[in-house]
């Protein structure tokens, strides 16, 4: 049975001194599904995710989490929301990989469980050998894996991924695809942004596109990714027949 997890009603947002980015966004995502957001560079995908995570407050409209206003549930509700930033350097702020992964875990789990959770996440993402190293000295791809590990370690029910496949090898992209599928099978909800047609086709159930500050689409991914008009709005090109 599906439960409405995240809902946005007529959300408007603008940065100070800048034109409006979100111009009345309507959106919903349920548990057990993967929703992709596509669109040209600079259209507001990252702003959308930051608003969904409660890190930006809309100028108008409302964001509901589990049918209750998100704002009123902060900050405790953040243990249910995991946001992976597009640029790992925007997300990493701890001196070692271990501390980066453990940061959120320490706030949720008792002390005797923390190390186990961290080691589990590190093993899943192949980071066991670099736990004592500074994350800033790792390669871009490894830093990306650290950001994933730091979120997956505390297992939130809503996962927000901003361009999750950027700067990753095709092998790592496959890993991410498998991870997302595992997460969905576990009954969680994933909202991701991407430019990658093949990746969206593989993982998403529904897809939205940004058009002039609003979201269009929201229907079945196969149908929409075969729709030339939709692809034009998203500035994507079809690389295969779905």
């Amino acid at each position: 049975m599906c439960t409405m997890l995240l809902k946005m009603n007529n959300v408007h947002f603008k940065y100070p001194g800048e034109p409006e980015v979100l111009k009345g966004v309507n959106f919903n995502a349920d548990l057990g599904e993967v929703v992709a957001i596509v669109g040209p560079t600079g259209c507001g995908k990252t702003t959308f995710l930051l608003t969904a995570a409660g890190l930006l407050e809309p100028c108008a409209g409302e964001v509901l989490f589990n049918d209750k206003p998100l704002k009123g549930q902060l900050p405790m509700v953040r243990r249910e929301i995991g946001l992976v930033f597009q640029d790992p350097d925007d997300q990493i702020f701890n001196p070692t990989v271990y501390e980066e992964i453990a940061f959120a875990v320490k706030q949720i789990f008792p002390k005797h469980l923390v190390e186990g959770k961290v080691m589990e996440a590190a093993e899943r993402f192949g980071l066991k050998n670099v736990l004592n190293r500074s994350p800033f000295r790792l390669s871009v791809g490894q830093r990306r894996l650290v950001t994933f590990a730091s979120i997956f370690a505390y297992n939130p029910i809503l996962l927000l991924l901003d361009e999750p496949t950027a700067n990753l090898s095709s092998k790592m992209v496959e890993e991410i695809v498998n991870l997302i599928k595992e997460y969905r099978v576990g009954g969680k909800c994933i909202i991701l942004t991407s430019h990658d047609y093949n990746f969206v086709a593989k993982v998403a159930d529904r897809v939205y596109a940004f058009s002039e500050g609003k979201l269009v689409g929201g229907d079945d991914v196969i149908r929409l990714l075969n729709d030339k008009a939709f692809l034009e709005i998203a500035e994507m090109s079809a690389s295969q027949d779905l």
Binding site: P75, R79, I81, F85, D90, F93, K106, Q107
Partner: peptide
């Protein structure tokens, strides 16, 4: 600008004041 972004990253993984005391 980096400080603003890092502040968001810290906020995204801060759930409240319930950090267990250290032994």
């Amino acid at each position: 600008e980096r400080a603003e972004r890092i502040n968001r990253a810290v906020s995204a993984r801060t759930f409240g004041d319930n950090i267990e005391g250290q032994v």
